[in-house]
Write a protein that binds this DNA or RNA. Structure first.
Length: 589
RNA sequence: GCACCCGUAGCUCAAUUGGAUAGAGCACCAGACUACGAAUCUGGGGGUUGGAGGUUCGAGUCCUUCCGGGUGCGCCA
């Protein structure tokens, strides 16, 4: 038995359609939808059944619709069915069908809206995976919130979800981190070198000049004294200090990142280490496997056209035939020094996820990795897996409409910590989901903390607080326990504003499924905003007409019905916020 | 130059995955507090969905091609 009344009605529609079109094909049936109507004049729900089956049945949509109406009218819950427009069938439901959602909610609480859509399929959602070379910044933040909420959403929709983080602790950037940390160490023990003199000794130059590495240098000095430096407190041979400094820097950077993630309310189930993966040597085995499939060859790539390629020269390299899977060019797997490219290691990493039993993989990436999507999906396709990639576009930080300058302390963009300090976790998380992830985002700090209707965070929280406020007030004279409210007779709920709210609550299970299927957690935020709007409207009806207030001293039955509706509304707001990782508030005075 | 993402009301954004007359908020105009929370609500005007073609019963959504913004472009992860 589903809690999704659209699914329930769809079953009835399909049954009717089979009567009208006996040899209905499976794929046609799959396209039949039952949707809420946009226009109340069209009834409560509409189905496209007649239109999608018209072609195969070789009958006109209107004709099928007319026949469907015959079979549908009078079915359980359906009080009327009529053909409309180009072949829709509009359905009007017994109001009791919508009222029935209230006891369901009050019995199931936040489990309401859950779904078996996922069938327990194991899904791996990889997100954040920020390089451990510095603090998390605003760009990471969007991916963190989108990934975390998407994972929550998929879990609610019945998938078996694992949240994963890949620590990019291998490769040249980590060497650069070690050198940068070493500089801070030398400073901590009082080196006489100046920064440029030091930088001249660093292979590839001194990167990561942000002040955030100072504590790493100090920690190294506290633990190791001057034993990692040359006798004059200058640069010693790498064999003396490199691994120590690198490992200390990595672990302190990761500790900081984990701390930031915790503050953001993000927690991963699995942290994988690129260095450990690479150390197994298994990357070569996966490449051999692909070679056995004829997908690896030694070859020379064409130079990129149009772009100034100053140091480009033709070179033979080991290439993966990603063009066979729709990529623009084949992609390199080995660097000129013989080591594997990040892509090669990432192929192994995804093969490893497959081996761990994940039928579906989702990677949440920043826009700067957009050019990488095609090769990675190509590789996972070759390995027989399914990979969906959610790209999060650039976030610009504004304050009152003005761009916020870069943070000096971080030596990079505004840090996640700064943002959390100023805006707060709940507002950050909610606001990050007020845009679909593939659209660019101007995050205005002032707007995110504003206490007005323009700010969806506030508007939704306020609706919840108002629900709780009513229940607190009612508790003085009524039993407002969910058990009691779930038993309330709801026949008195008939006002248009009450029905609108009921209809909205009834769409929650459907919304969860659709948002999960499209991998679009932002839909939750918009749903909650609409739901809050329905509730505020109903509230104000009570202002204009005292007979519509929730608590009616002389009419206990109606009061209980309304309190049940209010309580159910609060539950659904809470469950939506839970998916988004936002705490509901009880009051906002 | 090529690839990917985006382009919707003056502004910020939605749009039930191809469905009916494209919707909200802000701003603008006109209204509602002897209160279970007016931090809210009601009503109104505002559109050639960047342009042009195409696919079909039906396109903001899919295809082609331009225009504009963003991201990236053989050994950085």
């Amino acid at each position: 038995m589903t809690e999704n009344i659209f699914a329930t009605v769809r079953v009835a529609v399909l049954a009717a359609l089979h009567q009208v079109v006996p040899d209905l094909a499976q794929d046609v049936a799959a396209r039949v939808e039952v949707t809420p109507t946009k226009d109340p004049a069209h009834g409560d729900m509409a189905t496209n059944a007649a239109m999608v089956s018209s072609k195969a049945a070789r009958r006109k949509p209107a004709e099928i619709a007319a026949a469907l109406v015959e079979h549908l009218a009078g079915q359980a819950m359906i009080v009327s069915a009529e053909p409309a427009g180009p072949g829709f069938v509009n359905l009007r439901l017994d109001p009791a069908a919508f009222r029935a959602v209230v006891p369901t909610i009050l019995t199931r609480f936040e489990a309401f809206g859950g779904s078996d859509l996922g069938q327990g399929v194991r899904v791996n959602v990889e997100y954040v995976s920020a390089n451990p070379t510095g603090p998390m910044h605003i760009g990471h933040c969007r991916g963190a919130v989108v990934g975390d909420s998407l994972a929550n959403l998929l879990a609610k929709a019945g998938f078996d979800v694992t949240k994963e983080y890949l620590v990019n602790d291998a490769g040249g950037q980590v060497n650069a981190l070690a050198w940068a940390a070493y500089w801070r160490y030398l400073q901590a023990i009082g080196t006489t070198l100046d920064e440029e003199a030091f930088a001249a000794q660093v292979p590839g130059g001194l990167q990561y000049r942000g002040e955030y590495l100072i504590p790493v240098g100090e920690a190294l000095a506290a633990t190791h004294g001057d034993s990692l430096a040359a006798p004059d407190n200058g640069v010693a041979g790498v064999q003396l200090w490199f691994e120590t400094v690198r490992d200390t820097a990595l672990s302190m950077m990761m500790a900081g990142i984990r701390e930031d993630l915790a503050l953001l309310g993000v927690s991963h189930d699995v942290f994988s280490s690129e260095r450990e993966l690479a150390a197994t040597g298994a990357t070569d085995k996966v490449i051999d496997r692909l070679r056995g499939m004829g997908l690896i060859y030694e070859g020379v790539l064409e130079p990129p056209k149009g772009k100034l390629a100053d140091d480009w020269e033709p070179r033979e390299q080991t290439l993966f035939r990603s063009t066979q899977f729709g990529d623009d060019v084949d992609r390199a797997l080995r660097k000129s020094d013989g080591s594997n490219t990040y892509f090669a290691n990432d192929i192994y990493y995804h093969a490893d996820k497959l081996a761990r039993g994940f039928q579906v993989m989702i990677d949440v990436w920043g826009a700067d990795h957009g050019g990488y999507v095609s090769r990675m999906t190509s590789a996972t396709k070759a390995l027989g897996g399914r990979l969906d990639i959610v790209l999060c576009q650039i976030v610009k930080v504004l304050k009152g409409g003005e761009p916020v300058r870069m943070s000096k302390r971080a030596g990079t963009f505004i840090t996640l910590r700064d943002l959390l300090d100023e805006v707060g976790r709940d507002a950050v998380r909610f606001t990050m989901l007020t845009r679909k992830s593939d659209a660019q985002f101007d995050f205005d700090i002032e707007a995110a903390v504003a206490q007005t209707r323009e700010n969806p965070v506030f508007y939704v929280q306020y609706a919840h607080a108002r629900c709780r406020s009513v229940l607190r007030a009612a508790a003085e004279s009524h039993d407002v326990s969910p058990e009691t409210l779930a038993q309330a007779s709801l026949d008195s709920l008939a006002d248009e504003a009450e029905m609108a709210l009921l209809r909205r609550l009834a769409t929650w299970p459907r919304l969860v499924e659709q948002a999960a299927q499209s991998r679009e957690p932002h839909r939750i935020a918009f749903f909650l905003y609409d739901l809050a709007g329905d509730f505020h409207m109903l509230w104000n009806r009570g202002r204009d007409d005292a007979a519509l207030r929730f608590i009616q001293a002389d009419r206990p039955a109606e009061t209980l019905a309304r309190l049940a509706l209010v309580s159910a509304t609060a539950v659904v707001i809470r469950s939506g916020l839970a998916v988004m990782g936002v705490e509901p508030v009880e009051e906002m005075r």
